[in-house]
Design a protein around this nucleic acid. Structure first.
Lengths: 210, 210
DNA sequence: CCAAAAATAGGTATTTCTACGTATTGTCTT
DNA sequence: AAGACAATACGTAGAAATACCTATTTTTGG
């Protein structure tokens, strides 16, 4: 499968996972030229060696995998990036598409899937977990309900724990306007006609708002 | 360090982590006689082989690591259990102490710490991460504020999105009583004197209520 | 057993959230 | 240019959450 020893740099702040990843890639015949437990060190190494592939954890101290990928793009490096993540979250996926992210896979994935991702990306392709999209469609109700920019802005402020009054002050609009937006949001999200249902929804769906 | 080849059974639903754990224990000179990706299979294997040690993920499909440990105790097995977890959460630690849990470590831990835990537990000792306790004191405000059972019950219902009226009906008490409890909870938790601050707190701290 | 703590209940007042109206202005698309 | 949609704003009203009181009964710990 891998006739030449492709070089790869990896990073994950969980040492056990990093070791597992290292061993697995070695088994695949790849040459792991660097294994780091934070994003910063990984970026430095990628700049130095410019390997064809880097596999990075999304959540890491110093720099996230996404930030490293962004910097790689800025620097014009040819290194392709596969992100590892625990959660199937939309917000990152959207950003990932805008960067030079070539793969995005869940850590729960079977090793076979990881192998497939590595092969695909090294051949110039992309690999995004299907499960990611499943999750998205279910979790992200926003695109379906097509909230307007203002509604979204207000929803985020509600999620941050701000009251109507505070939101009005912050956005330099009338409280009534905020009220109206709230009302519209509730309709669009099909929430119960119950007090604080919007607040509760916002608190529990913070992640999908960004 | 490990002159006899101690046997161990491991389980984690993240394949990469499972592989890393497997390799690491092999490096330590342990004999991994079973590696599973769910709690049920691990329990079966533990029953069959009764190894001196099992290292289990806390969060797994079918059965959690804690449930497996509980069953081991019920069955009177001599197998000692080390739990692996991503989060430093008190709720599990408290339960863990009541079972035959011999170790409890965070996945972020350095491999050296894991080695130490394995050595300690195989020698008959216990190993609980210090960072666990740090986290507890900060995250778990409940024990500090010493909420009464009723207050806790009401707090849970608030976290479930119930209104004062609903809580009163559900508990067969007056709305005023619920009001009073809410008021006391707010005082004990030192929340802002702001509308819905209790609701927002409850929504964001659901996990620490159980 | 006695004292402290907790659970129960009520009164009054304020603030906030929400529903359901209407109406004006601007922008974007066809 | 016309029509649709979005953002803005206002009014009225009711439900809910919270604050700040008091007071009685139960439970529990020393």
């Amino acid at each position: 499968m891998h006739k030449q020893r492709h070089q790869v740099i990896i990073a994950d702040d969980h040492p056990i996972l990093l070791k597992g990843l290292h061993e697995f890639l070695a088994d695949l015949g790849l040459e792991v030229i660097g294994a780091f437990h934070n994003g910063k060190d990984a970026l430095d190494a990628i700049q130095d060696s410019q390997p064809p592939l880097a596999i990075l954890d999304l959540e890491m101290p110093e720099m996230t995998g996404l930030e490293v990928a962004a910097d790689c793009k800025k620097l014009g490096l040819k290194t392709r990036v596969i992100l590892l993540t625990l959660h199937k979250e939309l917000k990152f996926y959207q950003q990932a598409k805008e960067l030079n992210i070539s793969g995005y896979i869940l850590k729960e994935f079977a090793l076979n899937d990881l192998r497939k991702a590595v092969d695909t990306v090294l051949s110039g392709g992309e690999f995004f977990s299907e499960k990611l999209f499943e999750g998205l469609k279910k979790e992200d109700c926003l695109s379906d309900h097509s909230l307007t920019p203002s509604e979204l802005k207000i929803l985020r402020l509600i999620a941050d724990g701000h009251s109507t009054k505070e939101i009005a002050e912050q956005l330099f609009i009338s409280e009534r306007t905020v009220d109206k937006h709230r009302s519209n949001i509730i309709s669009k999200l099909n929430l119960e006609k119950k007090h604080n249902s919007l607040l509760i929804w916002a608190q529990n769906n913070k992640e999908s708002l960004y």
